[in-house]
């Protein structure tokens, strides 16, 4: 998976997924984000790294949070930003993805940020796009959501000394989650002690253990002695698909409550990619509680997205000059 993402010098050309990327590159992304985070705290929240560049947000799936943070990240790097929210009805008017790609290329854009319901969509675009254009995957089906995983790693690094000693539990709808897959790859690459996935069998993809994780069906066992809990959002459509009986029962068995946090490591942090469903996968006191770092994740998301945009567009040497 990494060959198409890297240029011949091993630098990031596209950012499609975490799978196959070397540890050093993940660390470089985190370090670049660290150097950029101060920008977001200044009164003038802008650096000229991507001045004159045009970034297109191509969202084939509805999203507010991710699209907004990508937009903010681009603007803070002084890039021009175009937002395309393509609902399925307009893309089903006959224009194929490849035709759309050619049209956007003709507008001389530099970077596409893509979210699409089909796994591999970003990969497909990277294979077919003109050579000077970079692609960042903002979520492709159930496959990967690599900027989310990197902002999660960034957040973990803020709170924990090193990755090597960590036990991390990812809890919920693993089957449909691109966040889970990207996080598993990132955590394994960064060399944590243990990655666990916790959820009912119906929401657990077949063969997930082959990714190197331990599978748990019981929340209490899955959370025992963990340092990081990564909760996943439960889509309400899962009931219609007969995957779970009810929100009520799901919360009984897989909802994160203050009581169940007792089994974790005392310093455990609680993360969630958002938007959260209070009373479905997470209890309000936990979401608002002192272990919750959910809002910190959102802030970090901007710095991570700035880092990845600047790296794929090769603007980082300039950054080092300006420092």
């Amino acid at each position: 998976m990494n060959t198409i993402q890297l240029d011949p010098q091993g630098r990031l050309k596209h950012f499609l997924g975490i799978e196959g990327l070397p540890k050093a590159l993940l660390i470089e992304i985190l370090d670049t984000a660290t150097s950029l985070i101060s920008v977001t705290e200044q009164t003038v929240k802008k650096v000229p790294l991507l001045r004159g560049k045009t970034i297109v947000n191509l969202f084939f799936e509805p999203s507010t949070r991710t699209r907004t943070t990508f937009e903010l990240a681009a603007k803070r790097l002084s890039a021009d930003v175009l937002n395309f929210n393509i609902n399925t009805s307009s893309s089903s008017k006959g224009e194929t993805l490849i035709d759309m790609l050619r049209n956007l290329e003709a507008m001389h854009c530099d970077l596409f940020v893509v979210r699409h319901a089909a796994g591999g969509a970003a990969h497909f675009m990277a294979q077919h796009v003109a050579p000077h254009i970079s692609i960042i995957n903002a979520g492709d089906g159930r496959h990967e959501h690599p900027t989310q995983a990197m902002l999660d790693m960034y957040t973990i690094r803020q709170y924990k000394e090193d990755f090597a000693s960590l036990r991390v539990a990812i809890v919920g709808d693993i089957l449909h989650s691109r966040v889970a897959r990207s996080n598993i790859h990132a955590l394994m690459t960064l060399g944590v002690a243990e990655v666990r996935v916790v959820g009912p069998n119906t929401l657990m993809p077949k063969g997930i253990a082959m990714m190197g994780v331990k599978v748990f069906n019981r929340l209490k066992e899955g959370l025992r002695n963990v340092d990081v809990i990564l909760m996943l959002r439960l889509q309400r459509e899962r009931m219609q698909a007969a995957l779970i009986p009810s929100v009520h029962e799901y919360f009984q068995y897989y909802g994160l409550t203050e009581a169940i946090l007792d089994v974790t490591h005392p310093g455990a942090i609680v993360m969630h990619p958002g938007p959260i469903n209070r009373g479905v996968e997470i209890d309000s006191p936990v979401a608002n509680g002192e272990r919750s770092v959910i809002l910190q994740q959102v802030s970090n998301g901007i710095a991570i997205r700035m880092a990845v945009m600047a790296m794929t567009l090769k603007a980082i040497p300039e950054l080092k000059d300006t420092r």
Partner: peptide, 15 residues
């Protein structure tokens, strides 16, 4: 096919 590859690629499986 539903299995390790469908899981890795995030594609819907056929058991």
């Amino acid at each position: 096919h539903e299995g390790a590859v469908s899981t890795r690629l995030g594609l819907s499986g056929i058991p």
